[in-house]
């Protein structure tokens, strides 16, 4: 029995390691590219070991763009978006999953349908809306439209469906909890893994969003990080070493954030049951 579990453990790690190698390889290559000159990057066969250009490339990044300003702006937009999205989406998702009210199915299906509308085409009309309400060049235009989004609500609803026991809510009701209390005190702790996912990927989505902020924001002091990064591309030729170094620098915070917050994938219930 001991031997067998040792083998299966080994097998598990082997499978995971193969997956990890495939996953990480392009990222590793990105890191390698950021340490080489453009010529070395474009060379064939490509260089797969680290070069010594990282500092020079990074220096070029900082000489050409205001990285920190862009990062700060993105952080402001992303943090507000995450907090707002988590709140509004979980509240609505929980309500859809656990309460019956007239028109619920109709409302939910129409919410799903909005996700199926191709987004690129609404680019210009969306800008017209922003222009009409005077939000061009403001952070609101980046934050508010996505605060309560169909994706998040759908996700929380599906998660709630399988994970929040009706008995628990019934017990809460008998204790005199109102609907918000049921949400806040009972559902939220159980929803922790789902919220962690939604929070992290909302953050990534906002962090990596490029076209919309490019169009809506004019003032260089308010450019978000991706918009700032795109300034590195030349019209005729591009210094790939510099672009990759900037890209790497922008990606590292995301990985750190993910590493820290992904601990919340261990659910509230499991936390109580198995202390580690």
């Amino acid at each position: 029995m001991v031997g067998k579990s040792w083998i299966s453990k080994g097998l598990t790690h082997l499978v995971l390691l193969i997956g990890v190698v495939i996953s990480v390889f392009p990222f590793y290559w990105l890191a390698v590219m950021s340490t080489n000159t453009t010529s070395q990057i474009l060379h064939f066969p490509p260089k797969l070991i680290f070069g010594n250009q990282l500092w020079i490339n990074l220096k070029h990044v900082f000489a050409n763009i205001d990285f920190l300003q862009g990062f700060t702006n993105t952080l402001i937009v992303a943090v507000i978006s995450v907090v707002g999205t988590l709140f509004f989406c979980s509240l609505a998702g929980f309500t859809f999953a656990k309460f019956k009210f007239p028109g619920r199915n109709f409302l939910f299906v129409s919410l799903l349908i909005t996700m199926m509308i191709p987004s690129q085409i609404s680019f210009i009309p969306s800008f017209i809306v922003m222009a009409k309400i005077g939000w061009v060049n403001s952070y609101q235009s980046l934050i508010v439209p996505g605060l309560a989004n169909a994706f998040g609500i759908f996700w929380i609803r599906q998660y709630c469906d399988g994970s929040v026991p009706d008995e628990l809510l019934e017990a809460g009701r008998l204790d005199g909890c109102n609907q918000f209390r049921l949400y806040w005190n009972i559902a939220i702790p159980i929803l922790r893994p789902a919220l962690a996912f939604l929070g992290i990927f909302t953050f990534i989505g906002v962090y990596n969003d490029y076209l919309w902020p490019l169009v809506v924001i004019n003032n260089p002091d308010r450019f978000t990080l991706q918009v700032v990064l795109s300034q590195l591309n030349g019209i005729y030729n591009t210094d790939y070493g510099m672009v990759m170094a900037g890209t790497l620098l922008a990606t590292v915070p995301l990985i750190i954030i993910f590493f820290i917050f992904s601990r919340n994938f261990i659910s509230g219930i499991a936390d109580g049951a198995v202390k580690d």
Binding site: V20, S23, F27, L30, V243, T247, A250, T251, I255, F258
Partner: peptide, 18 residues
């Protein structure tokens, strides 16, 4: 978990070149 997740944040420009 983190290593599986990097595919989703690696910049698409880099991914295209790769």
């Amino acid at each position: 978990r983190t290593l599986f997740f990097v595919t989703n944040v690696t910049s698409i420009v880099a991914v295209a070149i790769i």
